[in-house]
Simulated scan of single mutants.
Amino acid sequence: MGIISNVEFMLLQLIAECGQASGYDIKKLVDQRGYREWTNIGTTSIYAGLKKLGDKGWIVSEEPHRKSGKGPLPVCFSLTDAGLAKLKAETISSLSATRERDSRFDLGLAAMAHIGKDEAISALRTRLDFLEQASVKVRQKYEAQGSAHLPLHVRALFLHPLSLIESEQAFVARLINELLEESEIWKQ
């Protein structure tokens, strides 16, 4: 059925959820749900993604039949049967087999012995601050959207990154403690 990017996958989800959505509706949902906090989705990538989905036959655009107010009505998009099938297949695949991590952080962990122990501890403490700020941002968006009153699929969108952040905070704190206790000679 074709390769699908993260942006295209997200667009299929949001259009399916809305039934019919304009680019503006999608941008608003992306902002409200904090997608930009954890994925690379800009306004231009939304419109480029919509074009790609249309080219693949997964969505159709509907031109407005009448004007509203001073400007034209926005073009709305809806899923085709093929688009719905692709959304279902991608959802099953991503829930069952996707494992994504920030490999740049892993590379930093692997290279840690090449910096001073104090530098490593300082960098990891800075990461704890970064993670705390990220947690606060996600939690604020979650609460602003209605937290526990949200549908499960929307709550999960917030609770999963919060869970990952908490797990990474615990990992980094343990690593700092090990570094503080370690007596091994580090490169300076």
Rank of each mutant, 00 (worst) to 15 (best):
E182N: 14
V136N: 08
Q188R: 13
E178G: 04
Y142Q: 06
S167P: 04
K141E: 01
Q140E: 15
P161K: 10
S135H: 09
E143C: 03
A173E: 02
E166W: 04
Q169S: 00
I165W: 02
K137W: 05
I185C: 10
V154Q: 07
Y142A: 10
R139M: 12
F171S: 09
L150C: 04
H149T: 12
E166G: 05
I165E: 01
F171C: 03
R174Y: 01
L162V: 01
W186V: 00
A144W: 11
K141D: 03
A148D: 14
S147Q: 04
Q169W: 05
V136C: 07
P161T: 00
L180A: 09
L164I: 00
L179I: 06
F171H: 03
K187S: 14
V172G: 00
E184L: 15
A170G: 02
V154N: 13
R139D: 15
A173L: 07
L150N: 02
I176N: 03
L159P: 03
V136Q: 13
K141H: 11
H160K: 08
F158Q: 02
S147G: 00
F171T: 08
K141W: 00
K187V: 12
R155Q: 10
Q169H: 06
I176H: 01
P161G: 09
E168I: 08
L175K: 06
K187Y: 14
A148H: 15
I176A: 01
V154P: 09
A156W: 12
L164M: 00
L162Y: 11
H153V: 00
S163L: 05
P151D: 13
Q169K: 05
K137S: 14
G146I: 00
I185D: 14
V138E: 08
L164S: 05
Y142L: 13
V136Y: 07
Y142D: 09
S163Q: 02
G146Q: 08
L175A: 03
F158P: 02
L180Q: 09
Q169F: 05
P161S: 12
G146A: 00
L157R: 01
S183N: 15
A156L: 07
L162T: 04
S183D: 15
V154F: 10
S147Y: 04
Q188L: 11
R139F: 15
L152Y: 15
V172P: 00
E181I: 03
W186L: 07
E181K: 04
L164E: 06
H149F: 15
H160F: 04
E168K: 03
F158A: 05
S183F: 06
V138S: 07
P161A: 04
L152F: 15
V138Q: 08
S147T: 00
S183K: 14
G146H: 11
K137M: 12
W186D: 06
K137D: 08
P161L: 02
E178A: 04
L152G: 14
A144M: 08
E184W: 08
Q140C: 10
E184H: 04
L164K: 05
K187E: 11
V172L: 02
E178K: 01
Q145P: 05
V136E: 08
F171I: 07
P151W: 14
L157V: 09
E166I: 09
E181Y: 03
A148C: 14
N177C: 12
S135C: 06
K137L: 12
I176F: 01
Q188G: 12
Y142N: 14
E166S: 07
N177F: 15
H153R: 02
H153S: 00
P161I: 11
